[in-house]
Simulated assay, not measured.
Amino acid sequence: MGLRRRLADLWQPWQPGHALLAIPVALIVAVTVIDLLAPPHIHLGPLLVAAPAITASFAGPWLTGLVGALAVAAQTIIAILRDRDELFSANHQVQIAALALIGLFLVFFCRQRERHARKLDRVQSVSEATQRVVLRPLPHRLGPLRIASLYLAAEDEAQIGGDLYAATRTGTGVRLMIGDVRGKGLPSINDASVLMGAFREAAHRCATLFELADALETSICRHLAEYAHHAEAPDELHEHFVTALILDIPDENSMAQMINCGHPPPLLLRKDHVTTLHARHPDSPLGLCDLPRAGFTVDPFTFEDDDTLLLYTDGVIEGRAPDGSFYPLDERVARWTGSGPEALLHHIRDNLLTHVGGHLGDDAAMVAIQCSPKLQPGQQLRKAIHINGIPHHAHSA
């Protein structure tokens, strides 16, 4: 079965990349013809090694081995036609053996490259699965809010890091959180997972935003204490903390609340204006468990119909251009105040990547929230039915 599958790979449907195979084949033919027509003291046979080397740059081990075999056959034909008596001379034996050996090395290289590519694909699949479990996509609509989210990983192979966001619908409104775990790698993902799990549970249980922030602090401190107990270096506990922004947006009125625990302040887009919502007394990040905390400061702000709130992590505003300048988020956002949540994040993403030259220095997460008309589609339909005098039970039937 393995040989049959490999042979099938050789004769798979034609692809545009297969046209590149004409280059090494043409090189073999050209070197062979020129070497046979050249004077006896000129030998171009060693140039045949370029054919499998070129093939290895775009093809797999089987095509590379096939071109390598053609190159060895061409070298043998050159030896036979130029001088039959020298077919087994030391010179031709060394050339043929060296060409065959280099071809084998190239086949081995291609095979290792394919193994590495398959391993990378598996890692990316696991990363994507982890992202779906830990960093769940936010719903496009929660109550009266339209929501869009975006995660940009600094590493090409990564899909998730220490940046996090979560949102949930409560009985009176919507609660959201965005945060950034200090550090990278699996520990930061673990911390992010713990915090988001605590948020999803406590957001429904806690009556006030203050109680919610306190519950998150308790959860992350308990988690970090367990981590320090099992870690080889307990002092690392002091190096773990989470900046977080927690919001409560009610359904019935336009007075929303936020608690800022050392996180970059959100931007409020209202008509053609952009306002930075600075906290009156910013709280320290979550997880600084050894430091005394007097409490949390709840900051109210108005969030009216058609307003848009932009939440982001420091990976956005700390994106550096080649000249060292930071990304001016508030200045650039002013260009797109009339955009919806999805379009707004699309504009920021493209503009940010252009600013940094295509590569971010740190993970970046963004959430755009737009306050749409308070009536939901179902409510609007029921209101229209009521206005037209059609009983609701008739529509249900």
Rank of each mutant, 00 (worst) to 15 (best):
L269T: 05
F105C: 14
L267R: 01
V33Y: 12
R4W: 01
S254Q: 13
E342V: 12
P46S: 04
A343P: 02
R111D: 13
M196S: 12
H238V: 14
C289L: 08
S372H: 10
R280L: 12
D305S: 15
I387P: 07
M196G: 05
L135N: 11
E86Y: 05
A279F: 03
I160H: 07
Q370Y: 07
H18I: 11
Q75F: 00
A74G: 07
R205D: 12
L311M: 10
I259G: 01
P40G: 11
H273K: 14
L138S: 04
H263W: 02
R169P: 09
C371N: 03
P285K: 03
D307I: 00
A79D: 07
H43M: 10
L135I: 14
P16M: 00
L81G: 01
A256H: 00
P341H: 09
G103S: 14
H204T: 15
Q131L: 08
G162Y: 09
Q131W: 05
A158C: 11
F303Y: 02
V194N: 04
T337M: 06
G143W: 00
L345W: 02
G179E: 05
L268W: 03
D350P: 05
L352N: 00
D299K: 09
H347K: 13
L288F: 04
H140A: 15
D156V: 15
P16Q: 07
H238A: 15
V123H: 10
A294N: 14
A19W: 08
V194H: 06
V274G: 02
V49R: 04
L87N: 01
L288R: 09
A343S: 11
L120I: 11
R270Y: 04
T354L: 12
G361Y: 07
E128N: 14
S89W: 03
S149Q: 08
C110E: 06
F326T: 01
W336Q: 03
C289Q: 06
A69Y: 07
Y165Q: 09
L310G: 00
R115F: 00
I80S: 13
A74C: 04
A148N: 00
A90N: 13
H281V: 09
H347Y: 13
A53S: 10
Y327N: 08
I317H: 05
R113W: 00
A294Y: 04
S325M: 12
C110P: 07
V94W: 09
P13A: 01
T32E: 01
A26P: 10
L288G: 09
L381F: 04
A231Y: 06
L176A: 06
T55P: 01
C110I: 06
F109L: 14
D214H: 13
A22Y: 08
A198H: 08
A22E: 07
V72Y: 06
E217N: 15
M1Y: 11
L37W: 06
I34M: 12
